[in-house]
Amino acid sequence: MGTSSIIKAAVIQASPVLFNRDSTVEKACTLIHEASSQGAQLILLPESFIPAYPRGLSFGAVVGRRSEQGRDLYKRYWENSVDVPGPVTDILGEAVRTANVYLGIGITERDKGSLYCTLLYFGPDGRLLGKHRKVKPTASERLIWGEDDGSTLTAVPTEIGCIGGLICWENYMPLARMAMYSKGVQIYLAPTADSRDTWQATMRHIALEGRCFVLGCNQYVTRSMYPADLPGYEELANQPDVMCRGGSVIISPMGEILAGPLFDKEGILTADLNMGEIIRGKFDFDVAGHYNRPDIFRFSVNENNH
């Protein structure tokens, strides 16, 4: 990948067909081809797009007690989650291959009886290039998602640049970010469920800190999208009509907004990434290079699989 290369990237702000894996996979494939038809070479879909980020649901858990309804909801979520590798990754891989794009997509991955919040990477030949499991789910996410070790702190060297990233509030973890910067990430993927205005400051900070392009991608979800037969559905009565307003964005290595932020609707954002801007930005700040002080600070990552 030359420093004069220009890459067209797309972030897709969309809702899944909530708690319906097969229909969401079908929608994801349609969106991949739509973004590809707009010239995108790299596409990002949101955190836990398949089968849903289960916003607003308690899974019937309080300290010291779990409800039967909550167990039923977990079972439904597990049944609609994704084996990696498996039939869903095969379908996504074929869509990526025919669209001839790189893809990052957030899923809920199932492994034995456990679930993980996972980011998958696909290459334009349809191969699954790698995955990252969220190392620290936030707050009530810990009821449903396990935390992983450092073995999936993934960065993928590709023909269009080194692609890697973190999921949602992992991006608040300075050492996790440093792990990505140390791997030479040039296009930083940040699928999220955070739609606050303040999240935009985090995305711009990462771009400036890492001197990388940042693709932030969120869902747009309304309460009416939830299936009425979902265990615990009555809990949603107290939720706002718009449960996630989005905020997807594409940012340059100098912290400039290239596209977005997009709020209050579904849509596809695209931007041309001039890869030469990464080196221009690192002229005066390279956090893993000349701006590092290894004589003072020591940094290590345990990437062993536990």
Rank of each mutant, 00 (worst) to 15 (best):
V96K: 05
R66H: 10
G70S: 08
N100E: 13
G130W: 01
L103Y: 02
K112P: 02
L119P: 00
H132W: 04
L73E: 02
T89E: 07
G130H: 05
A139E: 14
P87Y: 06
D83F: 12
D90K: 14
F122K: 04
D90E: 15
G126C: 00
G113C: 11
V101I: 08
L120D: 02
E68C: 07
G113E: 15
P124H: 03
L115Q: 02
C117E: 10
S140R: 12
V101T: 11
Q69W: 03
Y77F: 15
L120Y: 01
V84I: 10
R142L: 10
G130Y: 03
L143Y: 07
S140Q: 11
V84T: 07
D111V: 12
K134M: 14
G104D: 02
G86N: 09
T108A: 11
G113N: 15
E68F: 10
D111N: 15
P124T: 05
L115P: 00
R71G: 10
R65M: 11
I105H: 02
A139V: 13
K136G: 13
G113P: 11
Q69D: 08
V82Y: 10
Y102Q: 06
R133N: 14
Y121V: 04
H132C: 07
Y77T: 08
T108D: 06
T98D: 09
G130T: 01
S140D: 11
E79R: 13
D90H: 13
L92N: 04
C117A: 10
H132G: 06
R66E: 11
R97I: 09
K134E: 13
F122R: 05
V135S: 12
L103R: 03
V96E: 05
K131Y: 14
R110C: 10
K75F: 09
N80P: 09
Y77A: 08
V96I: 10
Y102F: 13
R110V: 08
I91A: 14
R97Y: 09
G126L: 00
Y121K: 03
V101E: 01
P85C: 05
R142W: 01
Q69V: 09
A99M: 06
G130M: 04
V96S: 04
Y102H: 11
D72K: 12
T98Y: 04
V135C: 08
